[in-house]
Write a protein that binds this DNA or RNA. Structure first.
Lengths: 229, 229
DNA sequence: TCAAAAGTGTTAAAAATACACCCATGG
DNA sequence: CCATGGGTGTATTTTTAACACTTTTGA
């Protein structure tokens, strides 16, 4: 089977940057390539966009097929369109970034039996293609966006403590935050719902658990509220 | 001449949203389509990405060919990849938005002798394809970005008055700003350089002219400064 | 001399920051 | 009983917001 066009066409792919928070450390899911070019190198999960699926759908499908990740926050990042970014032929790639909650996403080995592993964003091996640049841009986007959109919660389990949330912000923004001021600010937004539950299995006073209330957020947004931390 | 591939491929295009400020009104440059589909409808300037040029280059080329616009701020917006966005065949489009200074860009009729015209963003005719959605997203991006990046200056001539700058912000953010507070805030950033020149040909006291100092901005950025208005 | 926009400073309110101790729990 | 992190309030500084009159210029 073959397909013929009047003009040459670029191949279209998607690449996914999957961020996860592991013990307060921001990590990225990478896959070890099993084929040339860059055989053996680590790379972002991704693959070709099929002609009968939207680009968004392709990103979700690749994510599922290569990592088993489903039902997560996924947003388009940027399209990488340099002529020589793939040594084989012209390939344009639409990059997406995903935020997953590592405690319930135990990432499975991918269907192609390639190796998948989490790496700290501060200790990334040499990557295939222009994936280092893509990852850098995704990290930058995450840092920027987390301050004015409540996306940090996507990296946490549904129930979390305020300290855990604070450490998330500290890790991603690479700063120290004052505990009292952080709590004051985030609670004043009235987006977190205190549950009738506390931490368990900790060797100290158990912390209050909270849940992010997406409905409250959407309602506030409608009436001109601006999240900002 | 024809080109054959093992799998079907989407066509790849670029579309450009060109914003300009005309007498304090935010306008967009549209082109009237000369061919089916949507013949006669207004649409965003754009066209096919060639296989030997980067996507960014394609955007600049189309902008030049269709509108004569060169040397302007141009930034990737988003990639639109729904399956049925073009009724003919699968077309994925990478959208870019440009900011031009209308006083020195007298837009020329495009090379294909199609009609080009400026429309107020608040009074847009029915557009071809999903261009209404693309335009909406570009407008949203502009509104968001202008508050924390000094891109508003791209819409003004190199020398401008503070009142003109204020009206730009008022138009794009759709608010009223206080004159004294606006001036205080923007001047305190030390990004505007007062010139030894004032307005001419005005029937009232001539205003001081200023210039945006990009070098100062870059220097401040390096040392952790954050533009925000 | 009039019309039109330029230019300018102070006060009050709100938000951000800095900061330290007692509490509850499990080992 | 001790080590560990949980939880809390106030005072100070900084930032934002509200507000009105005089000046300059050309017509």
């Amino acid at each position: 089977m073959s397909y013929t066009y009047e003009y040459p066409r670029a191949a279209l792919t998607v690449d996914c940057i999957v961020f996860g928070l592991d013990e307060d450390e921001l990590k990225v899911l990478l896959i070890q390539r099993g084929i040339e070019p860059f055989e053996g190198r680590w790379a972002l999960p991704g693959g070709f966009v099929q002609v009968d699926e939207s680009v968004d759908t392709a990103a979700r499908r690749e994510l599922r097929e290569e990592t088993g990740v489903t039902d997560v926050f996924l947003e388009q990042l940027y399209t990488f369109g340099a002529v020589d970014r793939d040594p084989r032929e012209r390939v344009v790639s639409v990059a997406y970034y995903a935020l997953v909650n590592l405690s319930d996403h135990r990432i499975q080995a991918d269907t192609d039996a390639r190796n998948a592993a989490w790496f700290s964003v501060y200790d990334i091996p040499e990557l295939a293609f222009d994936h280092a640049r893509i990852l850098e841009m995704a990290h930058e986007r995450l840092r920027g966006k987390i301050r004015y959109q409540p996306i940090g919660f996507e990296l946490l389990p549904p129930k979390f403590t305020l300290t855990r949330l604070q450490r998330l912000y500290e890790q991603i923004l690479d700063t120290k935050l004052d505990k009292r001021n952080f709590r004051k600010k985030i609670l004043k937004m009235e987006l977190l719902e205190a549950l009738d539950e506390v931490e368990t299995d900790v060797a100290h006073r158990a912390a209050q658990l909270y849940r992010f209330n997406a409905d409250a957020y959407n309602e506030k947004i409608r009436t001109g509220f601006n999240f900002e931390l």
